[in-house]
């Protein structure tokens, strides 16, 4: 445990002046910017849908979470874990790190937890930006329905669920990015499996596919949400949540077990 604390402390220093850190702020901001632009362009559609959903906040949040959790989040996980892995691959750090009197498992765990922290931070930033932009809409689009109090508890809950549901994807992408030093390998795997998730989410196997889990657990925001909301009938998607979160921890342990046994050539 002491080794993990030390390794996390070291990971924190590595994030200094890195693109990986700044992306946790930039990526959610890009999604919100797109949403604001769409709101501007399709005001009447939003007005209509907000009435259908019974709340402008619910519709806006749901729309943003769908875009983020189904497409952006897995791609973001791919990019972040690949960037974090490159800190070591780029300068042949593993030979230095593995020759230190530190548990190898702790070094791998710190890498995984660093990815988890980045994704957690980006999800928190996304929810905060949804809230801020929604409050801004009160002045920019009066009459759209943002005047009522935002459902803060639900927004935070589904942000958290989405984050927990992404742990398995983070574990898989961390292992791939650490196992193969080539940046392109990690990116190709992540992009291919994310693109496939757009098809898989429409099938009955969606609950068994790691890359669709964040979208499945995040889309339980409202009871009548539409086509993507397979598991959102007011019921917490427990199975998907456990598969994504606990499954993620188990996958990280297996990935770490495999990684630390490798020879450092």
């Amino acid at each position: 445990m002491k080794d993990i604390t030390h390794a996390l402390h070291a990971e924190l220093l590595k994030t200094k002046r890195t693109l990986a850190f700044w992306l946790t702020l930039i990526a959610p901001a890009v999604v919100i910017s797109l949403q604001v632009a769409m709101m501007w362009d399709q005001y009447s559609y939003h007005l209509e849908q907000s009435k259908l959903f019974g709340s402008a906040w619910v519709f806006y949040t749901q729309q943003t979470l769908v875009i983020w959790s189904l497409l952006m989040l897995p791609l973001f996980v791919t990019l972040e874990t690949a960037l974090v892995a490159q800190w070591e691959h780029h300068s042949h750090q593993w030979k230095h790190l593995f020759a230190l009197p530190v548990s190898r498992g702790a070094l791998y765990a710190a890498k995984y937890l660093c990815g988890v922290a980045f994704i957690g931070l980006s999800c928190a930033v996304l929810i905060a930006l949804i809230l801020l932009s929604g409050l801004g809409f009160r002045w920019v689009f009066p009459g759209l329905g943002f005047e009522v109090a935002p459902p803060l508890g639900e927004m935070a809950l589904y942000g958290l669920l989405m984050f927990l549901g992404s742990w398995l994807v983070i574990a898989i992408q961390t292992w791939v990015a650490q196992r193969w030093s080539n940046f392109a390998v990690a990116c190709s795997v992540g992009i291919a499996l994310t693109v496939a998730s757009v098809i898989v989410i429409q099938s009955k196997y969606a609950g068994f596919y790691p890359y669709t889990l964040p979208a499945l657990v995040a889309n339980g925001f409202s009871e009548n949400i539409g086509a993507l909301n397979f598991f959102a009938e007011g019921v917490l998607p427990v199975k998907e949540l456990l598969f994504g979160s606990i499954g993620g921890l188990i996958a990280a342990v297996i990935g770490g077990w495999h990684f630390v046994r490798r020879d450092v050539l």
């Binding site: 030390h6 220093l13 590595k14 780029h90």
Partner: peptide, 17 residues
């Protein structure tokens, strides 16, 4: 780590050990 200073590179290993 090229993006870190000399002192930070040492600090990183210092924290680890």
């Amino acid at each position: 780590y090229p993006h870190l200073t000399g002192r930070e590179n040492l600090e990183l290993t210092r924290r680890l050990i």
